Computed example of a mutant assay.
Amino acid sequence: MAGDELITIGALARACGLTASALRFYDDCGLLVPVRVDGATGYRYYREAQVDRGVMIRRLRGIGVPLEAVAEILAGDGVRAERLLDAHVAELAERAREAAVVTRMIKEEIRAGAVLSAAVLAAAIEQVRSAAALDREIPVLAGVLVESSADSVTLTATDRYRLSTRAMVPVRPSGAAWSAVVDATDLDGIGSWLRGLDEVTVRSADGVLVLTGGGTERRCGVVDEAYPDYRAMLAGLAPVRTRVVVERDVLLAVLEDGGAAPIVFFADESGLFVSRNGPERIAATVTGPGTELAFSPTTLRPALVSAIGPEIMLDIAAADAPVVVRSANDGDLTALVMPTAMTNSKEYSA
């Protein structure tokens, strides 16, 4: 008789669009039980007439009907089945409405952006901006990375020879984490506008960075490229061997008087010596072994100018490794400066 022929679990799976593992699951649940199970092999056999039931189960599960409701719907009571289906659709509609409300709230929070002290943001832009590349050989390096998280907004820039990063605590954080690489030239001159405000809202939207405050708005273009993993770069720095704490203005004066030629530094327990018209000692606190290295003034000077506070700290790993420049009284701003090759070495003495 048609419909009485036995078929394998694989044949049933193909006929009703289910997997064999799903059919075994529905067997264990009692929803679609084989008519015979081979005692020796464990193979399950079904009747062809069970294909329609398998298709119905697949369709019901496809719209998320719970197993218990599937069993009741398949029990044969048409009125009860319709009520269960209507209840399920009503529940789906309610969940969709709730999801729409939550989605709208999240979008509003994302659009709201992070609220920052405008003066703090202006200072951070000036401190970090100078580390961005001047040329556009690598376009993303001519930008400033802006990252917003639950507890901070961070600006980062690097031209491969310098790196500067500054974290700020927002007055109100953004509703969601986001990042954007802002074209550095769009940040030029924005400091004067920011200093006329108390607070500014920063958000990323529609391919631009939007700054809003005082009823006015500034839009900065973004670079659609992945930014280098500067955190991995910082984490991979060699251990600090020598640490120098020195007055920033004194060191800046050396760079101003030394011209454009590389300046050689030597640091040991007696202080810091520089090659400016002959060796000259600068008062400094030095910990660790003596070390000698050289910097290009055009590379080192921006890091010193942007430093916070009267003293700066130089963390030195080696003469050919990036030097970390930090404010001695504030680790909030961190800069990396690459030393230059030394063309000559000098003898230093107190």
Rank of each mutant, 00 (worst) to 15 (best):
L336K: 01
L304F: 13
S149G: 15
F273G: 08
N344M: 12
A69W: 11
A22R: 10
A112Y: 11
V324I: 14
I110Q: 12
M233K: 04
I282P: 00
R326M: 07
V182P: 00
G213M: 02
S164F: 00
N277M: 04
E5R: 15
T185E: 15
G189N: 11
W178L: 01
S275V: 13
T156I: 12
S345V: 14
E199C: 00
S204C: 05
F295E: 01
L23K: 01
L272I: 08
V305C: 01
R61N: 00
F266G: 02
R276L: 15
I73W: 06
T343C: 00
A328C: 07
L141E: 08
G309E: 02
R129S: 04
G78A: 12
V223I: 15
T291N: 03
R160I: 01
G39T: 06
R83Q: 15
I9F: 03
A253D: 10
V245L: 11
I106N: 05
L293P: 01
L272S: 04
L32A: 07
L304P: 03
E292C: 04
K346L: 14
L251G: 05
L155N: 07
L255T: 01
R58W: 06
R36Q: 15
P173C: 09
G196M: 04
A176G: 12
V70W: 13
L194F: 11
Y348L: 01
L23H: 00
A119P: 02
G62D: 05
V120F: 10
R203D: 09
R44P: 06
A122E: 04
V79R: 13
E82S: 14
A20H: 11
E137S: 13
D186H: 13
T185L: 09
T41A: 07
M168D: 01
A303G: 09
S349K: 09
Y26D: 10
V171Y: 05
R80Y: 05
A49L: 14
L194P: 02
D315M: 08
A13C: 06
L84Q: 09
C29E: 15
A180G: 06
G30P: 09
W178R: 05
R24A: 03
W193T: 00
V264P: 00
E269F: 08
V70N: 12
Y348E: 03
I263C: 04
A177T: 14
A226I: 04
L272D: 05
S192D: 15
D151G: 09
P262S: 02
L237V: 11
E225F: 07
L31P: 11
